[in-house]
Every structure is written in structure tokens, then in C-alpha cells.
């Protein structure tokens, strides 16, 4: 009376006619049940009383009438119950049942009462993922844009303006050293930078070298701020990004050059009359900006 999974179909008790011809292998669970029950000399009613299952359910079980039976979870439970009472192998019965019934995943219910931390009709997953992807894209775009904006002028100047650039650096140098008097006839016609460079050279022959640097920087797309301190003065220069380009007390008789920074620059001098300022090679008159206390505050490039 132990498990009899190798019970061949022809040994089955009469009447155990499975509706569908059972596949080869272990006997149908219904046939196993029926045989075990009859071996135990139990009538269907006795068996029903012991298991508390209805006679109809037991009949369906023995006839393998899976359509009349309920969900697999219950049917498997019934088999286990019967197997334990009759001394059959639970696994054998359930394996035989599983082999005959296609395993359907229990469907998830449509709605369930849940309590969330906050009321939320839809999960945050999509939103979170969307945000993450958006942040990545924005970050990437910003990075690309930043890279372009910083490299582009340089690339342009190296590719296009390399030749005039050389001309600029040489011409004013020659002008400054050999002939202080200007001679603006040769090259300077094309680039606007070139016109300013000789002009600077003419107006300020003493700072020829600085002018050369200025023109050079200008040609590279940057800005040049030349500061000559005739007297000691406090100076503070911030660029558009709030970076301090220069911040401190400058002694009289020194000169400073600022070549970087994002315009517009905000400039402040503590002793404006003592400073000579050139922006991109052009002198800036501090007079109109100078206050009564000798300080001057202005923004470069000048806005009119």
C-alpha cells in the first residue's frame, strides 16, 4: 500500500476511465486514488467523511475530471490530503496531476488594498527612470556645449588665423623696435585685430611688447586688459562667471596684463587717476567713471 507510481494502465481498476487517454508514464492520479481507496476498503462516502471533501469532489478527483475541479492550489491540496490518508506518495500523485494539467501561473489580481508611504496612483519607477535619463542627457549636452564653446575659438584661430597671427606678432614688434613712428601701410587690412594692433603700437610705443601680446591674445579670441600703475592702487577685476581675475594692491610703476576671463568684466580701481587702462589694445578713459573719492567702477567692454 505504498506509492505505486509504476502502476500500468491495464492494471487499473475498472471504471477508472480517464476522460482523455492518459499519457504513458505514471498512472493518472485519479486511478491511483481510486485503487488505493478500494484497497483500503473504503467507500466513497467513508472517504468523504474522513477527508471532509464532498462526494462530488472525490468523484471528480477519481475520474480525473479536472474541469469540474477547482483551482490547482486546491486540487493539489486535495491530493495531498488523500495521499496522506491512504498512504500514497504525495509527490507521486501531484507529479501525475501536474503532468496532466498545464501549469497556469495564478493570475495576479487587478487591485489590492495597499498602503503606501504617500498616496501614489502610479509607481515612481517610470518617473525616476525618466528623470535619470533626462539628467544624463542634459549633462551630456551641457558638457558637449561647454567643450565646443571653449575649444572652438582656439580651433578657428589655429586653422584660419594662424598666418595673420604671425604677421601681427612680427609687424608691431618691428614697428616698435626699429621704427617707433608708425608705418601702417603693409599688411594690416584683413582682420580687425590687425588694425588695432598697429594702432596700439602707434599710440603707445613704449608698451610695444605688451601691445604685441594683447594683439596676439585678441587674435586668439580672448581679451586683453593692460594695466599700468603709475601710482599704487587697489584693483579688483571679476569676470562674468564671478571669477576674480585680479584682486589686490598694485604698486606704482608696475604693469599687469589680464588675458583670460569671460566678458563682461567688472573692474574696480581704488585709485583710478593713477591707472592707465587699455582694453583689447584700446585705451579706456577712466575719467568719466572716476568718483570724487578717486575710485572708478566700470564694466568692460564698455557699453554706451
Amino acid at each position: 500500500m505504498t506509492s505505486d507510481p509504476d502502476l500500468s494502465p491495464d492494471e487499473l481498476a475498472p471504471g477508472a476511465s480517464a476522460p482523455a487517454s492518459p499519457p504513458s508514464g505514471p498512472a493518472s492520479p485519479g486511478a491511483q486514488l481510486r485503487r488505493a481507496r478500494e484497497d483500503a476498503h473504503l467507500t466513497l462516502e467513508d472517504f468523504a467523511a474522513q477527508t471532509k471533501l464532498s462526494v462530488a469532489t472525490l468523484q471528480a478527483l477519481e475520474a480525473d475530471d479536472f474541469g469540474a475541479l477547482l483551482e490547482p492550489v486546491y486540487v493539489r491540496g486535495y491530493y495531498r490530503k488523500c495521499a496522506r490518508l491512504l498512504g500514497l506518495s504525495e509527490e507521486g500523485l501531484i507529479a501525475a496531476y501536474n503532468a496532466r494539467v498545464k501549469q497556469a501561473q495564478p493570475q495576479t489580481p487587478a487591485r489590492i488594498r495597499l498602503s503606501a508611504g504617500s498616496v501614489e496612483s502610479r509607481s515612481g519607477l517610470g518617473r525616476v527612470l525618466g528623470l535619470v535619463i533626462m539628467a544624463i542627457i542634459i549633462g551630456l549636452l551641457a558638457y558637449l556645449w561647454f567643450m565646443r564653446s571653449t575649444t572652438d575659438p582656439l580651433a578657428a584661430s589655429t586653422e584660419v588665423q594662424r598666418v595673420p597671427d604671425v604677421a601681427i606678432t612680427t609687424t608691431p614688434a618691428v614697428t616698435a623696435m626699429a621704427r617707433p613712428a608708425s608705418e601702417p601701410e603693409p599688411e594690416p587690412t584683413d582682420a580687425p585685430a590687425e588694425t588695432t594692433a598697429p594702432a596700439a603700437a602707434t599710440s603707445e610705443p613704449a608698451t610695444g611688447a605688451a601691445t604685441v601680446a594683447a594683439a596676439d591674445a585678441l587674435a586668439r579670441g580672448g581679451l586683453t586688459l593692460n594695466l599700468q600703475f603709475r601710482e599704487t592702487s587697489w584693483v579688483r577685476i571679476n569676470d562674468a562667471e564671478g571669477r576674480a581675475l585680479m584682486n589686490g594692491l598694485m604698486n606704482g610703476g608696475t604693469a599687469q596684463t589680464v588675458k583670460e576671463g569671460t566678458p563682461p568684466l567688472s573692474v574696480f580701481f581704488g585709485n583710478a587717476p593713477g591707472v592707465v587702462l587699455e582694453f583689447n589694445g584700446q585705451p579706456v578713459d577712466l575719467g568719466p567713471y572716476t568718483q570724487s573719492n578717486r575710485t572708478a567702477r566700470l564694466t568692460l567692454p564698455l557699453t554706451n
Binding site: 483551482e71 490547482p72 492550489v73 495564478p106 493570475q107 495576479t108 489580481p109 487587478a110 489590492i112 488594498r113 495597499l114 498602503s115 503606501a116 508611504g117 501614489e120 515612481g124
Partner: peptide, 21 residues
């Protein structure tokens, strides 16, 4: 990050495979 609270009997029934719907 987010906590959902469910009553045990419902979870038990779902886990047992009972068609609760």
C-alpha cells in the same frame, strides 16, 4: 525609498495561489 504595506492574509492567499480576485 518607498514602502507599501499589505495585510498578511491577502499576501498569504496570493502566495498560496488562491485566486483572490
Amino acid at each position: 525609498r518607498k514602502v507599501y504595506v499589505i495585510e498578511e492574509p491577502i499576501a498569504a492567499a496570493l502566495g498560496a495561489g488562491i485566486p483572490v480576485g
